[in-house]
């Protein structure tokens, strides 16, 4: 694994963003792993620090990644919005990956003899919630891609109502309305009794 792009990155990332915006689809493929890596690294660092987690938001990570990866000022808001759009999506992946990793670690070989304090709860584990949310978001995207995007931007990317409206080129009222329906839809999906 290569070292985190501490210094070299900002210029590169900024250039990739500009390329992507001007139509270079391949730029996104190069951009994605950089952002993903950075988000992961930041998440890891947070894990090790003594900071009060209650105050940590996904938004904070996304923004910090932005500050580290992108040179001081991007030419326009649109490019920034692009970046955050990508980061929101990746943030979602980081979180879901993390949850999956932990679950499979639990199932793994050493687990049994560790169960000194194993308590099985009736309530589904927290991690399951996020996986369920992730699955539901994927189904929503198949039904109505824009609504799924709204949720991703708002909850994983920390977009405000007006930023979301700007990024998707719709009115704020539409964002509000669609977000509400999307939330109701997602909540309904994840509250269904699991059949597995």
């Amino acid at each position: 694994m290569s070292a985190p792009p501490e210094d070299a990155a900002p210029a590169a990332v900024t250039q990739l963003l500009i390329d992507w915006k001007s139509g270079d689809k391949a730029a996104l493929d190069l951009l994605t792993p950089l952002v993903y890596q950075e988000l992961h690294r930041l998440a890891d660092r947070y894990l090790r620090s003594e900071r009060d987690m209650a105050t940590l938001q996904p938004t904070a990570l996304v923004h910090e990644a932005y500050l580290r990866l992108v040179s001081q000022k991007l030419p326009d808001w649109e490019s920034r919005a692009h970046f955050f759009g990508v980061a929101a999506h990746l943030m979602r992946q980081v979180l879901v990956d993390q949850v999956r990793k932990r679950r499979s670690a639990k199932r793994g070989s050493g687990a049994e003899k560790l169960s000194l304090d194993e308590i099985v709860s009736f309530a589904p584990a927290r991690g399951r919630d996020l996986e369920a949310l992730d699955d539901a978001l994927n189904s929503l995207a198949r039904q109505d891609a824009r609504k799924a995007k709204i949720i991703e931007l708002r909850f994983f990317g920390g977009f405000s109502l007006d930023e979301t409206a700007l990024a998707l080129d719709i009115s704020m009222a539409t964002v509000g309305r669609e977000q509400r329906l999307a939330e109701a839809w997602l909540h309904r999906e994840i509250s269904r009794i699991p059949t597995t």
Partner: peptide, 9 residues
């Protein structure tokens, strides 16, 4: 739920 996932991190 998103919050919990972050805390879980």
């Amino acid at each position: 739920q998103v919050q919990h996932a972050v805390v879980a991190l």
